[in-house]
Deep mutational scan, measured.
Amino acid sequence: LRLEVKLGQGCFGEVWMGTWNGTTRVAIKTLKPGTMSPEAFLQEAQVMKKLRHEKLVQLYAVVSEEPIYIVTEYMSKGSLLDFLKGETGKYLRLPQLVDMAAQIASGMAYVERMNYVHRDLRAANILVGENLVCKVADFGLARLIEDNEYTARQGAKFPIKWTAPEAALYGRFTIKSDVWSFGILLTELTTKGRVPYPGMVNREVLDQVERGYRMPCPPECPESLHDLMCQCWRKEPEERPTFEYLQAFL
């Protein structure tokens, strides 16, 4: 395994491009020591290896001592969030954005069929390849993070704006909380990567959403798509659509 080009840095580690087995181009995620327990990670990795779908980033291998390494397929255009905010983002029109959403829903419909939960679905965790191919990455890892700023769910590192209220408040993460996050991801797509709930801080978002506030229809977004977002944001988790439905609708 060779680490060649550093692609990015996040709160919990770095991402590199490299070569595996001398020939395969891969992405390598390294986790800061202390982010998660190697034992817990190894268990999760076994499950992650079983998830194989064309719209999920394929896991190739893991190094399960500290520092933990995760070796996955390489996606040339990086994260969907950076892609939307970058040069190419300007030229993306609604049909392409909807197609990308459908690809993500397709990957998540598979996660749904496998009775698995992602827990951290957002544009930053979707990767883009050639020809606007989108794949879901980092599934299941969020559960293992041991950082206090994260586990408190009120901490600075927790993605509260993407998280369903029952998950943020009571830790009830299910495929239905993933559906909520998918609704937020749809706003990221239609606004080219704007942060959700602009002008609001995490605490406010939690309070307002509890009181029934939902983001309005983004500019140039059809009402039918906003309606779909609002279905994803129904207060009762069981009233939210399935990913199978979302995939078919898109």
Rank of each mutant, 00 (worst) to 15 (best):
I126S: 04
I28F: 09
L169G: 09
A45R: 03
E87H: 13
E210T: 09
P196A: 04
M48C: 04
C134I: 10
D227L: 13
E14M: 15
S106W: 10
A61K: 13
K6V: 15
C11F: 08
A142H: 02
A102C: 07
E238N: 10
M108V: 14
R203E: 04
P219I: 15
E244R: 07
T24E: 11
R203C: 11
G171T: 04
T151W: 14
W233R: 00
K6Q: 12
E238L: 12
R52L: 07
T163I: 02
T163E: 01
V136R: 01
T30L: 14
L42K: 04
M75I: 06
E236A: 12
A105G: 06
I70D: 02
N125R: 00
C11T: 03
E223P: 11
G18F: 07
R214C: 09
R93T: 06
P216S: 09
W233Y: 06
Y69S: 03
E87S: 12
E54I: 11
Y213E: 05
V111Q: 04
T151A: 06
L144G: 12
D178Y: 02
T163L: 01
A45G: 12
F173P: 03
L51W: 00
W180T: 00
R143N: 03
C221D: 03
Y213W: 07
Q9T: 05
V62T: 11
A152E: 03
K157V: 14
M215V: 06
G86L: 09
D138W: 01
D138G: 02
K176L: 11
P198G: 08
V117A: 04
K50G: 07
R113V: 13
Y150K: 02
F243Y: 11
C134K: 01
E146G: 05
R234Y: 11
K161M: 08
R93D: 05
G18M: 09
K161R: 06
P196D: 01
R240H: 01
Y150S: 02
T151F: 13
Q46V: 05
K32A: 02
L81F: 14
L144C: 12
E44M: 00
T151R: 07
P196Y: 02
P237T: 12
L84F: 08
V136D: 00
V15Y: 01
I70Y: 01
Y116H: 05
A45Y: 03
E4A: 15
K49Q: 06
W16D: 14
V57K: 13
L186G: 05
R214V: 11
F158I: 06
T191R: 04
I104G: 04
V26Y: 08
G22W: 14
T191V: 07
S181T: 07
P237K: 15
L97M: 12
L92T: 11
T88P: 12
Y69H: 10
E39S: 12
T35C: 06
A101M: 09
A156Y: 05
Q247C: 10
M48F: 02
C221A: 08
A101S: 12
K50H: 14
Y213H: 06
G10S: 00
C134V: 09
R240G: 00
L185H: 05
